[in-house]
Amino acid sequence: MISNTSHAQTLRASAGEPEKAESASSTSPSEIALTNVSKTFALGKGQTLDAVSNVDLNIAGGEFIALIGASGCGKSTLLRMIAGLEDPSQGSITIAGQSPEDCIKRHKLGIAMQEHGLMPWLSAWNNVAMPFRLAGLPIDKKRVDELLALVELADFAQAMPKQLSGGMKQRVSIARALVLKPDVLILDEPFGALDAVTRRLMNNELQRIWSQQPTTTILVTHSVEEAVFLADRICLMSPRPGRLELIEEVELNRPRGLDTMHEPEFRQILAKLTTALDDVCTQGSRQ
């Protein structure tokens, strides 16, 4: 298995953000190790479904991983196992050498799921503040304001979820995932409800936030472009049962900006991965 530690660190060093040293003292990005992880769901009546099969992956502290693959190939299941929401049927997962449950107990995990999962009875502000309450920590009001501003919803702090558009709700949910300065950030298709322009702007924002705050991030996305723009490495999963078919390093300099997407290297990686994704998906349907 390739270890990507040095690579990720070099990239970060070249980013050279001045605030970095300060924020790095409060958190330490955790490395994640997946060893031979499989998940089989029992469907009842003796039937089973293999969702994820024999995944081996070492993710360096502070690395950004994007996970792509066909719908239903087990991406969300893999994320849920890393987040400690589902137990693997086989194999093991460790975050900074300990179990995902341990990471959860220390309130060091941030998560934004495919469904935004906002509490409909709480305003946007209170939804972003929710992790503080759940974790039993005093609410850092400045931090909540800061994150709402970051996702460009400062004017909607007091709006209720049903008054927000789908994309706005997803942005609130991302702010909520980031509010505790997590060591591990888990994002399942967080920009799915956004239009192309807002999506690119949000990608750029996420890229900026991530380079200021070293966070081991795993992002599931259907957009190869998004994956290439954000990730250090891209993992391509085969159709169900999901296996890691291909791991591609993205050697684009950081910080990346909106103009990065026009660079020839970017286009090249994008084309290569799009082809690989198409190949993997059509193979699956031919079987």
Binding site: I104, R106, M113, M119, P131, R133, L134, A135, G136
Partner: peptide, 26 residues
């Protein structure tokens, strides 16, 4: 209680009490 609410609640390492008061009861 929606599953995604249960997931969010668990992912932030909360106690049964806080989960009850903040998520389940509402």
């Amino acid at each position: 209680v929606p599953n995604v609410h249960r997931d969010v609640t668990r992912a932030y390492g909360t106690t049964h009490w806080r989960a009850l008061l903040l998520v389940q009861f509402p």
